[in-house]
Design a binder for these strands. Sequence first.
RNA 1: GUGAGUGUAGCUCAGAUGGUAGAGCACAGGAUUGUGGCUCCUGUGGUCGUGGGUUCGAUCCCCAUCACUCACCCCA
Length: 416
Amino acid sequence: MEIKAIRGMNDILPDDMPKWHFVEQTARKIFRLYGFSELRSPILERTEVFFRGIGDDTDVVEKQMYTFTDKSGTAVALRPEATASVLRSVIEHGLLNREPIQKLYSIGPMFRYERPQKGRYRQFHQINIERLGEDGPLCDAETLHMAYALATSLGLAGVRMEVNSLGCDDCRQQFKTALKEFLREKEEKLCTDCARRKNTNPLRVLDCKVVSCKQAVEGAPSIEDFLCEACRVHYHEVLAALDALGVPYEKNPRLVRGLDYYTRTTFELTAEGLGSQNAVAGGGRYDHLIQTLGGPDVTGIGFAFGMERLIMLLPEQVQDNRGCFVVAQGNATVQLTALTLLKALRSVQIPAEAVFGKSFKAQMRKAGKSGYPLCVILGEEEIAQSMVTIKNLQDSSQVQVDMAGFVEKVRSLLDK
RNA sequence: GUGAGUGUAGCUCAGAUGGUAGAGCACAGGAUUGUGGCUCCUGUGGUCGUGGGUUCGAUCCCCAUCACUCACCCCA
């Protein structure tokens, strides 16, 4: 039987690599503009980190984690998301003691045991940021703005930002109670899933796509009406700041996130063309998470982009094909000289390639397919005169130049 | 975990009421004793997902199984 990759775990092949590099480079560039630094945490953590961080009755923790016991008997898990892991690192190293404001990003693989589908894989990659120790509404607005800036810098079209406030614990408790009460009367209209979760996770019912559920929740209480004074002011100031920054957004009081730790501001970035999983990014504020994980009482906000979903939205990247192919035909001296030409080109940072052990014709074919604009041709005639032939592969013109100065000639032709 | 669809060459796909398979692209070689991309010719490459059943005979029909894809749940 053929050996294949594990379900939901994909190879990223060279053809796609330019897109990945583009995404990563763009993200690093944007984050630097906002003063963020990179932090890399391990892929494996004690299971407890996510158990305490994400919430033990969320789907992510309940049924999607890759967990096992290592050889010492420690319960460990492949990280299903970055935030809990990054915060564990921040707490462990006391970063907040040294500098009470931390602006961090990380990029890497995450693991969730789910059925794969378009835009969802068991190993997937996220670009993640955490911003700790600031809690004014302007901090939230600027953070959402940074997410928006990344999306637009990547050239994503048709991106929409949806914003909501989940309030603090007090607001949310009151809202949940009211919502449960409302749903109790609508019970018969709900789909089987919603009938089940109206008690466990009533906020989710608001988000259901089943038509009868959509009808049932019309006129349902809105979180907006349950925000306490402080939360309402905070929310409005966030929105006002987004307006001032020119970030287009839509309020979505039914926007619910699946991780338990969110408080107040939450948001999602969606795009078309992703199929059913249309969120490219999501995030929000988490005012108690650091403390929950055993750290100081410091607030935070963060978001994550799904890299595979970003990649799907990108057009083909134009490759940088500056470089030169070397084609050699003749005796051993010619071959050896060709090798030194390659070395000379590379020593001045010009990418250079050749294929060895192939016919002249085959070498030329490879040169043509290489995408390089130039090739250097070396044969016994050239060697005899101490010359090389430089051919322009785009217009087929060629010149003979002295071997001593050929590198400079190649460089000037490439830089034209 | 649930549902639907699809599994034939490296890729995209044809195919016959059941008689062991084709095209395009890609790859390799040639037409051109030292000049690629275009054109033409030639070639390599498939246990027709796997196992079982029906049959003289199955890639095709039946069953099972696995894989992939999409959707639900949930999320990036």
